[in-house]
Nucleic acid binder design. Structure first.
Lengths: 192, 192
DNA sequence: AGCTAACTTGAGGGCTGTCTCAAGTTGAGG
DNA sequence: CCTCAACTTGAGACAGCCCTCAAGTTAGCT
């Protein structure tokens, strides 16, 4: 790839990162091109679809989440690790409206490195008797979806409000005082 | 108002009710007109803005919610009333994608009849020692927003999944085993 | 310096949805 | 039956965003 092409690619990524973070994944592509100081045609040359751009911008996130999962497993207390992991993921969401959108739209993929780790986090916390036994990994989507909605709704006015939401959900996930859950657990959904 | 005009208005409302319910509040207006068997111009004659149409379609909902709140207060057990109220509201959301959108976008208005009743539901459940003392009425938005997101995400594949989400939140709202919440409660937000 | 493949450009066509308004139609009172 | 205010109509102006491609430019090799 030519030197100038590489530079343009990076400008585009920088612009997209910023705009996605501030305004969400649906920001117009021509605006990204404009902020990058590049024509819309060049953007399409480098990233043929919006998804390709999103994927490139958030490529590191999957690994970041997997790292967080490993840290969680390294924590002595199983519940503490579990709670810290969820909190960290939600912090990523709160810090970046684009990732907030992305997290709410995509489910963890089965083959992924993070998937196995997350499963382990859940099972460990359940074995320790701290996490209620009737939840599954898929139920954590409720936390992600819920916090995503709260972040989107309160970002401007109460940027820390999601922490209350998360705290309520964590208390709901505790084994102590849990009432049985209705219905079957969520199937391990592919996406959305 | 002329007889045919009244009839057209009702056709529009019927069409809008159906389309909002199936596809959410953002369904194109010209499609509503088409389904109603009326021109787009007529739609704009009757309802100058989308909000006016939405308002007309869901005009009864505010009263419905207030009625539900009254029923909740008529329940002997304070917590049971509280939980039944939230469940009923979420059932409205699950049954109508349009209302699901609406509930997530608008906060209960201060002067509203339902507002006072909901306040009472919360306070009664807190006085009974069942609902944790550190939540406020505004915190119930987390339930609405969260369930709204879950309904939107799982409607097609697991239409009852929101009940698990709600059950987790209800357990999180219980006084028993509650950990202190972080941050200040949400300000009584106007909208959104 | 000259050449060429790689790259950039941005006007323009396409699509979807909103909203308007001049012209035509019709219900209903007199 | 006549009249006219009320109503309906739908083409079309407008706006936002997507995506393409023919023409022009440039990096980098020889």
């Amino acid at each position: 790839m030519r030197k100038d092409a590489v530079q343009n690619r990076e400008r585009l990524l920088r612009a997209a990162r910023r705009l996605f973070a501030d305004r969400g994944l649906d920001v117009p592509l021509d605006e990204i091109a404009r902020v990058a100081g590049v024509s819309i045609g060049t953007l399409y040359n480098r990233f043929p679809t919006r998804d390709a751009l999103v994927e490139a911008v958030f490529a590191d996130r999957r690994a970041t989440v997997a790292d967080l999962a490993e840290q969680a497993l390294a924590t002595d207390d199983a519940w503490e690790g579990f709670a810290a992991f969820l909190t960290a993921v939600c912090e990523l969401q709160a810090a970046d409206l684009g990732y907030n959108d992305l997290a709410a739209r995509t489910a963890p993929v089965d083959g992924d490195r993070g998937y196995g780790l997350m499963l382990e986090i859940v099972e460990r916390a359940q074995s320790a008797g701290d996490l209620r036994a009737d939840v599954t990994l898929a139920d954590l989507a409720f936390v992600i979806w819920g916090v995503s909605a709260t972040v989107a709704a309160t970002r401007q006015t109460s940027p820390a409000a999601w922490r209350r939401h998360l705290a309520l959900m964590l208390d709901g996930l505790r084994a102590a005082g849990a009432r049985p859950l209705p219905g079957p657990p969520l199937p391990a959904a592919r996406d959305c």
